Amino acid sequence: MSLPELPASDQSVIHVHHQGQNTGPFTGPEIVAKLNSGELDSNDPFWFPGMQNWVPLAQHPEVTKHYGGGAPAAGSPPPPVPQAAPAASAGVPQNEDDRLDALFGTLIKKSWNYLDEQNFATQIDEIFLGAVITSTLDAGYNLIDLTSDGTHHYLRFENFEDGSRTIFRLNHLTGDQVYAKVLGQKANVVLGYGEKVGNISKVLSALKAELKSSFILNPEPGSIVVDGDLTSGYVYCQVDMFWSLDDIISRDYSIDYSKLADWIRASNHALRKYLRGRFM
């Protein structure tokens, strides 16, 4: 009896009847591995689409070529043909039954993938917020203020040793799954670095043409805006950026804190140099 070639190594379609139970489906390499490990026996009947009947594993030349256990002993009775697996629905050919089962499994898998993508798109905003807080705390700053308006998150941190401050306005831009699919996960980040100055009134007078609000959304990324707070005596340099969250947050929700901390450190470094070069 001529047997068809084993399916491609990435196709899990081989069924095996082992110790009274139907197991699988497996790939060809999985079958050989399980034979060599003793999980399957060379006398176990097997079947995959394209075969007319169940036959012992040892009768297939591709299996015996790689399996060290050899063929069944001469004169041994033929193994029973399993009656229950894989069972086809009434009136549906065996091959078509397998195809429909596989198609149904694909539909379920894609549904779960869609749900995972939807959950990721809606949860990444809070994950990003937590990651920024953790990375800034690790950089030696202390969180002194946190507010949200439903769209933006506003954060203020202070280094109690030198009195410097870091401020953020975070806005996750791609919470919708469709936009996220096209653009990736993006966030608008306004990051500011601030220090106290001796004569804040003089600084504010010099900045009155620039001063509009405590957070100024600049449409040109990389442009630095200088702002001052008369109440606290702090002058801030702020920069508007767009960050790719895919670079720091994986689909399994793991976070590259080291990379995020480096982004924050580099931004603070540049803003500090600008602030001190202009006012100190």
Rank of each mutant, 00 (worst) to 15 (best):
N36H: 03
G38V: 00
L40D: 02
L40F: 09
D41S: 08
D41M: 01
D41C: 07
S42K: 09
N43M: 08
D44L: 02
D44Q: 00
P45D: 04
F46M: 10
F46I: 08
F46P: 00
W47E: 04
G50Y: 06
G50V: 11
G50L: 01
M51I: 05
Q52T: 08
W54Q: 02
V55R: 04
V55S: 04
V55P: 01
P56T: 10
L57C: 07
L57V: 13
A58V: 13
Q59V: 08
H60E: 00
P61S: 11
P61I: 06
P61F: 13
P61K: 06
E62W: 11
V63I: 15
V63L: 12
T64V: 15
T64P: 07
T64D: 13
K65W: 14
H66C: 09
H66E: 15
H66Y: 13
Y67G: 10
G69L: 05
A71I: 15
A71H: 06
P72W: 15
P72G: 09
A73G: 04
A73C: 06
A74P: 07
A74L: 14
A74I: 09
A74V: 11
P78N: 10
P80Y: 11
P80R: 12
V81P: 02
P82N: 05
Q83M: 08
A84G: 15
A84E: 07
A84D: 10
A84C: 08
A84T: 11
A85D: 07
P86I: 02
P86L: 00
A87D: 06
A87E: 05
A90E: 10
A90L: 11
G91L: 05
G91K: 03
G91A: 07
G91W: 00
V92Q: 08
P93K: 04
N95T: 15
N95Y: 09
E96V: 15
E96T: 11
D97Y: 12
R99G: 15
D101C: 09
A102M: 07
L103H: 14
G105L: 00
G105E: 05
T106E: 14
L107E: 09
L107F: 09
I108R: 09
I108Y: 06
I108D: 10
